[in-house]
Design a protein around this nucleic acid. Sequence first.
DNA 1: GCCGTTTTCGGCCCGACTGTTTTCAGTCG
Length: 582
Amino acid sequence: MRNEEVARVFDRIADLLEIKGESIYRVLAYRRATEEIRSYPRDVEEVWKAGELKLIPGVGEAIAEKIDELFRTGKLDYYENLKREIPESLADLLQVGGVGPKKAARFWKELGITTREGLEAAAREGRLRSMEGMGEKSETRILESLAALRRRETGRIPLGRARESAARLLARLRSLPGVERAEAAGSLRRWRETVGDLDFVVAATQSESVRRAIVEWSDIVRVLGQGETKVSLELQEGLRLQLWVHPPERFGSAWQYATGSQAHSVRLREFALDQGLSLSEHGFKRTNGKEILCASEEEVYSTLGLPWIPPELREDRGEFEAARAGRLPGLVEESDLRGELHTHSLWSDGTVDIRELAEAARDMGLEYLVITDHSKSLGMVQGLDEARVREQRAEVKSIQKSLGSDVRILHGAEVEILADGQLDFPDSVLAGLDLVVASVHTSLRQPRAQMTERVVRALANPNVDVLGHPTGRLLGKRDPSDLDMDAVFRTAAEHQVALEMNCHPERLDLNDIQARAALDFGCMLAIDTDAHHPDHLRLREYGVGMARRAWAAKHSVVNTWPLADLETWLGRRKGAVRRDRG
DNA sequence: GCCGTTTTCGGCCCGACTGTTTTCAGTCG
């Protein structure tokens, strides 16, 4: 059972307990455990086997016992009993906007509604207004929310799409009269791989005129809410936007608040309370009522004696402990990247020739670039055979000659890891390449043991330098392959193979949690765009965002290294081969 | 239900916005 499956059980339990009217703190305890399990860097099943469940934050005696029962028996009596008591489908109502646990419970008890379909029918027939506290507007809101839910398959949109929209909206916000500053916040600013709403904070002295201007934007489908400091809107395609307007002298606390995460902000406010301060989006308040205003985020953190914490770390995953100990990591930055290790040219399925790629890399300030076209067994993309690899090597040489020394082109390949873990080229060919990215593109659904053995075997080949898009997932489209990631990380660390953080917004593979686990195993990372077009080289920022969420420092990312250091690392395999031969 | 260099019991963030019940509960982030 995977972490996500375990997390789902406890999330469901929290929903049902909340509908049942249990103590909110018990519910919150289940929610906390859910989040911790979901983002836990190791397989909880392994943690269970090691008898270390209580090492997971938020997991105490009671929840540890339940996890144990889940792994031992595959089910959980407590959960089964709860489902007999409260219809499980009621939990689906909680996703409907404006419906929380209290209303869900009353729909069930007073009107016998247990499903979304039932709720919709009742709202259409005007039966909801028979309940105290419910009127016509509530019915309309629920019908609109149900329709919005259907429009959007999942509640969250991929970061890539969110960032495109956000950039557009931000430019418009900044051009409004009276706006002194406008910034993105929320999970977008934290570089989460998916984003719920687009959150923005605006600094303006005249809040009202700004809010008025915004709600008149032509692409707004409807206004979800509007008050003194906050506006919520729905844009086309079900995109939701939240915007806070605060005076410039309060911008810091407002931006911190809007950036979250919720868990991070809760901790921050607890910190404030310890020091006799109450923190909100408006600033700090002392017990005597006096305010401390923060125009910048730095002031928010420094008021509590903390260094500014980068948004990517704000998940309550140890950043406070690190900040207090003065051990926040120096995170990798996009400007640290000196090279690109994974690109495709016209030789396989890229869209431009090698020269164009190299020139684009050079123009972006990169010092080196590795051409890694596909290998032969990937026939549909014209993977290269041994003869074409040799031809390509000659072309790389000649282009290098004509380009001069501004950018160095290395000749590599993205080699298929075949279904049995063998590589698509013999060692003699691999050894002649400057760099080898090994990747899985086919038979992605092998059983766990087989898939793991396959990847581990490839990693152990001394000619392999980078494991490309390690899990094969496509965000929202294809699940990751079933792999024992601990075994993959252990092997990669042992053989000094770098793990790719594929920058394509559809992949983001490894993701943040996996990459952090990999770093714990002592692995190195490679932030690669897998570019098939020069424009794709710009996607580096996504990989950097993901790496920063993984707490990656510059030195852990091999393509931040100067070329000489990179070549030393690549040269290690010659040593390994010699060792193998005794 | 979890957690603790103030605590093993008594705490567990803070405010905005909405609809409807004319003073507030529920929802949301």
